[in-house]
Design a protein around this nucleic acid. Structure first.
Ligand SMILES: [Mn+2]
Ligand SMILES: [Mn+2]
Ligand SMILES: [Zn+2]
Ligand SMILES: [Zn+2]
Lengths: 132, 132
DNA sequence: TCAGTAATAGTAATTATTACTGATAATATG
DNA sequence: CATATTATCAGTAATAATTACTATTACTGA
């Protein structure tokens, strides 16, 4: 993998945030350093970095993909109203996948995703002052 | 919620499969009964059924949303090559979210998603006969 | 230094999903 | 049953997110 300014800044931007940005959000950040960077370059590099397991892509049912420079396994909370994504502030342990089972041996396991969905504090308080 | 033929067949189709189909796949199935049903109708109804918690929508990193008539909590395996989604054949238990914590009380929790990604048996055997 | 080629910027195309609109049909009520 | 109300529909247009294409640029190893 060649070292390019674009790839380096993209990774720096992702490592400099805790907000699990989308490709578009990374793009706007990177533009402050490289004003003429292409959105396609951002998509391509993020996807490449995911492939090489330098970063990870976060699961989601609605909206865009989001990226996370923290590859240590951890769970996420997602707000279904404002699409905020944050790390869970507590450890989550699962029942281990039985590695000696035929099910396991027939597959190659890559990642485990754990996500809790709900309504975040900001959106929750908003919805309590219900509109008429 | 009004009872319509379209909504009934969409739910029947989803309940009649174990393959976690996308909206488009449901559409093509339903067309065998209702040849002129609109794709928008399928999307609208699936989304409505998710809202009413009659079905659930499955997390995914790439491609389309997928739907599941089985609303009993369970985990999924997704193949990163062919996008197959299947139920995990074993129970998964998590550390419970601490309900008396301030973190929990500040939010409203809706769902918990657990997904394992990897390479399915079919794609695994394919990749072992490596092309030259 | 420089040939080879991976990566880029800019743009077009594709894919998945949602929005709009006038017509249709499910339901409630007399 | 008749019919008023209106949720839902089919058909179509629009949007949003992502990917593909292409000529040019700039890493990197020899
Ligand atoms: Mn994270
Ligand atoms: Mn399932
Ligand atoms: Zn929120
Ligand atoms: Zn597969």
């Amino acid at each position: 993998m060649r070292q390019t300014k674009q790839r380096r800044i993209i990774l720096e931007v992702l490592r400099g945030t805790v907000h699990h940005p989308s490709a578009d959000e990374v793009y706007h950040q990177v533009r402050q350093c490289i004003p003429n960077i292409s959105l396609g370059t951002v998509y391509r590099n993020l996807e490449r970095l995911v492939q090489d397991k330098v970063i990870r892509k976060i699961v989601n049912t609605q909206g865009q993909g989001r990226f996370d420079a923290n590859i240590i396994p951890h769970g996420h909370f997602r707000c279904v109203k404002c699409h905020l994504v944050e790390d869970l502030p507590f450890e989550v342990t699962f029942t281990a996948i039985p590695e000696n089972s035929s099910w396991y041996r027939a597959r190659e396991i890559c990642e485990v995703h754990y996500e809790v969905t709900g309504i975040c504090p900001v959106c929750k308080s908003k919805s309590q002052l219900a509109p008429p």
